[in-house]
């Protein structure tokens, strides 16, 4: 699929922003540990950047995204502010959820980010809601729902596909199959290789894509988003990918080093960069400059987070009721 030069650059920039955000987040977490502070769970999206970026490139601010526990990448790709996200990781009052949510609960409705979720598969039925609202109000907004292959074993995911297809809702279910649900390999969870055939059993299209190839994700998502936007109903996409880090900061690496090395050889960022240089869309120098800019932005975001205040303790009851 042909891609516009500006769009390609923007996508690379977002992929780098996600990668650098995760590295910085990990650094902040370790700084906290050194001070004796434990800042909850942190699930790195490193390695999966092509999925969020390839899908969200087709979304408008008013389109909705429902994310998962591993959601920083989705939030950044949907346009959330990295300073507010970084501050949220430290529980600061300037955080994207005011310090009430943390890593797994980042919300920014202004850019269509309707939140991460601490319950595996928890977003899959919620995603039906904004899709239903678009149909109810007769507009062409779509909803994308990201979840891991672990969530694909949940009953509610299947109920949600059934309802999405039954009512032809404009929703795109994006399964990021990174092969491991915490410490359980997908082969211990699925009796089959691919997810897409399950979609067919609900009467909706299912597509399998190389989740480490941003252009392939971009092309597949284009089809799914167009279908949803034009009233053609839901799509299930399974993106085969891999996370470069352990499940979260507190679970030691349990996977074979050789598997990790093999997947690092398919790292979506260098792959995309090679393509851009080969096609003459960017030069090595431009890529290096872009990286310097991204790095400066992330450093500024980390400083903002460190320097922001914690919420006043007595504000704990704020935001419980509307």
């Amino acid at each position: 699929m042909d891609i516009d030069r500006d769009e390609a650059r923007a996508m690379l920039r977002t992929m780098h922003t996600i990668r650098r955000f995760e590295l910085k987040a990990q650094h902040l977490f370790e700084e906290g540990l050194a001070r004796g502070e434990f800042l909850g769970a942190l699930h790195s999206y490193e390695g999966q950047e092509a999925v969020a970026v390839g899908v969200c490139a087709h979304l408008r601010p008013e389109d909705a995204v429902l994310s998962s526990h591993r959601g920083h990448g989705h939030a950044i790709a949907k346009g959330a502010d990295i300073r507010a996200m970084m501050a949220e990781l430290l529980g600061k009052v300037t955080g994207i959820s005011g310090g009430h949510g943390g890593s797994m609960h980042m919300f920014d409705p202004a850019v269509g980010l309707l939140g991460g979720n601490g319950i595996v598969g928890g977003g899959t039925p919620l995603a039906l809601g904004p899709a239903f609202a678009a149909q109810y109000r007769g507009n062409d907004r779509v909803t994308a729902c990201f979840f891991g292959e672990g969530a694909a074993a949940q009953g509610v995911f299947h109920e949600s596909m059934n309802l999405a297809s039954l009512w032809q809702l404009p929703v795109i279910y994006v399964c990021e199959n990174n092969l491991w649900a915490a410490t359980t390999p997908v082969n211990d969870a699925w009796p089959v290789e691919d997810l897409a055939p399950r979609a067919e059993s609900f009467g909706m299209p299912g597509m399998t894509v190389d989740g480490n190839d941003v252009l392939a994700v971009y092309a597949t998502a284009a089809e799914a988003v167009d279908r949803a936007r034009s009233g053609g109903g839901p799509t299930l996409i399974e993106a085969k990918t891999y996370r470069h880090r352990p499940h979260c900061m507190v679970i030691p690496e349990h996977r074979d080093e050789s598997e990790l090395e093999e997947w690092q050889g398919r790292d979506p960022i260098p792959r995309f960069e090679s393509y851009l240089v080969r096609e003459g869309l960017m030069t090595d120098v431009e890529i290096a400059d872009l990286l310097t800019e991204v790095e400066a932005e992330l450093e500024e975001a980390a400083q903002f987070a460190r320097q922001s205040e914690l919420p006043a303790p007595d504000t704990f009851a704020d935001h419980l009721w509307a």
Binding site: G98, G101, F107, H319, L320
Partner: peptide, 8 residues
């Protein structure tokens, strides 16, 4: 509503 810091 609570988790979103009052945004939702």
């Amino acid at each position: 509503r609570y988790m979103s810091g009052g945004q939702l």
